[in-house]
Amino acid sequence: MRKKIVAMVLISIMLISVNACSIKSNNRYSASFLELFDTVTTIVGYAENKEQFTEYSQMIYEYLDEYNRLFDIYNEYDGINNMKTINDYAGIEPVKVDPIIIDFLLYSKEMYTLTDGKVNIAFGAVLSEWHDHRTEGLNNPDIATLPDMNTLQNNAKHTDIEQLIINEEASTVFLKDPEMSLDVGAIAKGYAVEKVVQKIKDAGFENGTISVGGNVRSFGMKFDSDGNMVPWSIGIQNPDQASLETTLHLLNFSEDSLVTSGIYERYYTVEGKQYHHIIDPETLMPADYYAAISIVCLDSGLADALSTAIFNIPYEKGIALIESLDGVEALWVFKDEKEKYSSGFLSFVK
């Protein structure tokens, strides 16, 4: 009898300890969807069970979907005024919009000031020209063409952010210049991710990482195979995609964002030469300084804006800007694969 009791106790202890080790690491779930922001959204995180994780994922999807509709410059949606509506009414009349859009546009103006105009959401007239040529060129690679420089220079005259009139009290937005348009691609995803993470944390999702098209935002921690809480492990894409090394560096993350801008992301080929989508406001051509830029900081919106800005300026100017900001680190990857880091970047590297 006593033997049996001892055996029972031993078995239960073992079952409990096996469970204790794996309970957290086994409660790791992931989800992804392709419908939002014209890119891939991936969520990983820990929850009590699959139902709870599905509930979190559903909430994230719905929040992101709302931002996606409001920030869309290409499509209209029933019953809402979005960026496309604002563009369509340029030079005609102010458009009544959701406070989310007002807050976002004010933030975008801040980013314009911070980056000395290197991130300009009023740059739509130039970017749309590149967008059209890229789309056409991807669909018909044999007859891919570059935008005409005269057209680009003419369109660049209609990119003055001061002509974007925001009336906070009336919650309206007006583009005074009829030829201008907004393109929020350099900030919108990062901004949306940041807002959604704040909301989902309030809803009880404590440990997760969300990526919207490579705009990565972590919160809380992950659990290793022994059930210990350890930092998230976030990789930076190797710009050389033929390499067997998928990542350049692995970073330890808890409450952090990482955004990378690279020449390999969205590009098309004209007469054998690749033209990517990050357009330098000075030259009106794809910025030619680096293969990739990564920014690490708490706020995913800031990281997104800075990754574009730093991509568009020479290293000396870029490092000066990064070092002037608290809690922001950067990695420069040059086209010859050499790398430079801001002063605190390596403290994140595993």
Partner: peptide
Amino acid sequence: HKVVVEIQGGEESEVDMISN
């Protein structure tokens, strides 16, 4: 093409997410 190819139930990677 709305195609996703995913590996499930295999060797666990050290990397949780990649920024590209």
